[in-house]
Amino acid sequence: MHFEHLIEINDLANPDVPDLTREEVWFGLLCRAEDPRPFLPGLEACEILTREDTMLTRKLDFGQVVIHDTVRWEPLEWISFESRANDEHPAGLLTISLEQPAPETPALFLRFAYRTGLSETVGEDAKYADFVRSAYHQSDVDTVRVIRMIAESTRTE
């Protein structure tokens, strides 16, 4: 299954919601890499196994399911989360890209792009594709909400 969508970060028509900078959004995405518990309901623990300049490997403990993944990034541009398949979990890839159509404006978006082994057209998987897309979208909305909370908590005014 391939699923992709955009979420607008700064609502230029709503002055009541503070704009986030590219740097604040990026910091939130790095927080998701370092400690994904606030972003992933049900995650009990995250252990960083290896660390390089632009890559982490992690062990994610959801209780009954343990997932190993690799996080890679290009600073201020994109971050990807690639999970390895095991008996309880299929392999998958999520790439989150920061998009700013006009650098001189605060317009800012996150593009979420998923690739999984779930079939959208064949067998039992096809029955669940719409549900999975909906769950991914809601998770991504929640990610932006958590990033906004992190940014607001770190601002000094």
Rank of each mutant, 00 (worst) to 15 (best):
G63Q: 08
E34G: 06
D125G: 07
L12Y: 05
K59C: 14
L43Y: 14
D87M: 05
F112G: 03
S97L: 05
A113W: 05
L60S: 10
T54N: 15
F27I: 00
D11C: 09
H5E: 08
L43K: 13
W78I: 00
I7L: 15
T116M: 07
V71D: 01
N14P: 02
F131Y: 09
K127Y: 09
A135D: 10
C31L: 12
E23Q: 15
G117R: 11
R155I: 04
E34T: 06
E34M: 09
G92S: 15
F39K: 09
P106T: 07
E44S: 06
A107P: 04
E8W: 00
L94W: 09
R22I: 08
I150E: 03
N10F: 09
R84M: 10
P75K: 14
A85V: 02
A102D: 15
H68R: 15
E24D: 06
Y128E: 07
W26D: 05
K59I: 01
E34P: 00
F39T: 08
I67S: 04
A33H: 09
I48H: 02
C31Q: 15
H2I: 06
E120T: 09
L29D: 06
D19I: 00
V17S: 07
A113T: 14
L76N: 12
F81I: 03
D142A: 13
A91D: 13
I150W: 09
D125V: 03
G28D: 08
E74L: 10
S97T: 15
D140G: 10
D69N: 15
D35G: 02
H2R: 13
P103T: 07
M149N: 12
T70S: 11
W73D: 00
E120G: 12
P36N: 10
R72H: 13
D19V: 03
H68I: 04
N14K: 12
E120L: 04
H5L: 07
T121G: 01
H89R: 05
Q64V: 00
H5P: 03
L110T: 15
I48D: 01
S119F: 09
V66P: 01
E47F: 06
P38S: 04
D16W: 05
T143M: 14
D125Y: 11
S134W: 10
V144W: 07
T54D: 13
L29T: 08
H89P: 00
T50V: 12
L108G: 08
A151F: 04
L29C: 11
Q138K: 12
D19P: 02
A129E: 02
L94A: 06
P36D: 01
P36W: 01
I48L: 13
L60Q: 13
E4C: 05
A129H: 14
Y114E: 07
T57V: 04
D140A: 15
E120Q: 12
R37F: 03
R37S: 08
T95L: 05
R58D: 00
L56N: 07
F27E: 06
R115V: 13
R111V: 14
P18W: 14
L93G: 00
E4A: 13
M55D: 00
R37E: 02
R37P: 06
R22F: 00
D61C: 05
L20Q: 05
T54P: 00
P36V: 01
R32W: 06
L94Y: 03
L94T: 08
G42H: 11
